[in-house]
Design a protein around this nucleic acid. Structure first.
Lengths: 124, 124
DNA sequence: TGTTGACTTGGAGTTAACTCCAAGGTGTAT
DNA sequence: ATACACCTTGGAGTTAACTCCAAGTCAACA
């Protein structure tokens, strides 16, 4: 699969994909005889994973660390698991915070709707 | 309330608080005779709101717009409500995305746990 | 009255995560 | 064989949201 095809599949730019590879968010991708990137199914699953984790705010730094451990082999399984657990803690905290803000926002919006219906402003 | 007290109350730095005021994330805060910031209860509720919204990723730009509309008075009530709804859409999308990533992460971690118990690696 | 510590301002610097660019190579349809 | 779109690299530039700094003011205490 060419870089363009991967980009279209995941709605991402070639620059981002090259950046991910350069810094190590995904392992190195093989090249064609001409030197162009040629993504295998395995490469693509790394890309998919990176996009998923990034979309939940997992830092690039953490993904780099994971790939680094992965390349070191089976001895790093526990370290990798711990990294995933660390990522999970961060995501859970964000989920809680976002939900809390969501609740406040819903309350605020309901007050605006009330004010607009009655024409009476009773706050701030 | 002094800037220091507000900072301690919300675990935030004075620089951030001054930055919020400078760019308009919160309305201007009154000063003492000596020129120091003196936060009223109303100022504090603006600060609290800003921190809450920012912690859910609502862009600074949007908070500035909200404060700007607020200062224009009652004629902007509908616009303000629409801004809040826009913020809510963004937060809901993040919540969905984070939950999806959480599910994938839980699955991944469970596979690691399985691998560590059985000593058998069956993937990647 | 002098020193200490917290405050003020405008402006510059930092960080993460891209995003863009120049100079050049590749590949395929005419 | 020659456009033309697409690819490569290293490196520079951008953006959002802070974060830090210098130079100066102010308040309280020895």
């Amino acid at each position: 699969m060419t870089i363009k095809e991967v980009c279209e599949k995941y709605d991402i730019t070639p620059d981002t994909l090259r950046y991910y590879e350069r810094v190590g968010v995904i392992p190195e991708v093989g090249r064609t005889a001409g030197g162009n990137r040629n993504y295998t199914d395995e490469d693509i699953s790394w890309v998919e994973n990176a996009i998923c984790m990034r979309s939940a705010g997992v830092p690039v730094e953490m993904l780099i660390e994971y790939v680094k451990l992965y390349r070191e082999g089976d001895s790093t399984i526990e370290a990798r698991k711990n990294l995933l657990i660390e990522a999970r803690v961060g995501i859970q905290e964000k989920l809680n915070q976002y939900q809390e803000t969501m609740d406040k926002l819903n309350y605020k919006i309901s007050r605006y709707e009330e004010a607009m219906k009655t024409g009476v402003l009773t706050w701030e």
